[in-house]
């Protein structure tokens, strides 16, 4: 079963409108982002099934991984 990446509104803007992607499990969030040509450092927050994780988290089968950027700022 693949995993889902979901993008918050701000990240959607950076990525030109995408809001969800299906990805294969087994790789870290960082590596997955790099493979999708998304600069990992643009992602400010990784939340996996509701808990905050680092970009080194290895994506598991069935995970919903929410990714946020901070575009407007603090």
């Amino acid at each position: 079963m693949p995993a889902k990446l979901r993008f918050g509104a701000s990240l959607r803007i950076l990525l030109g409108g995408k809001d969800e992607l299906t990805v294969e499990p087994g790789r870290s969030v960082r590596a997955t982002l790099a493979s999708l040509d998304i600069k990992p450092e643009l992602v400010a927050m990784v939340s996996v099934n509701g808990e905050m994780q680092t970009k080194d988290y290895v994506i598991q089968e069935g995970d919903t991984v929410r990714l946020m950027a901070v575009v407007g700022g603090g």
Binding site: A44, M52, R66
Partner: peptide
């Protein structure tokens, strides 16, 4: 309806410390 509501509410501004 915002994608980030739950995570933002859980952590508030501390959401960005790690980043």
């Amino acid at each position: 309806d915002a994608e980030g509501l739950k995570d933002w509410t859980r952590y508030g501004t501390t959401i960005v410390v790690s980043w």
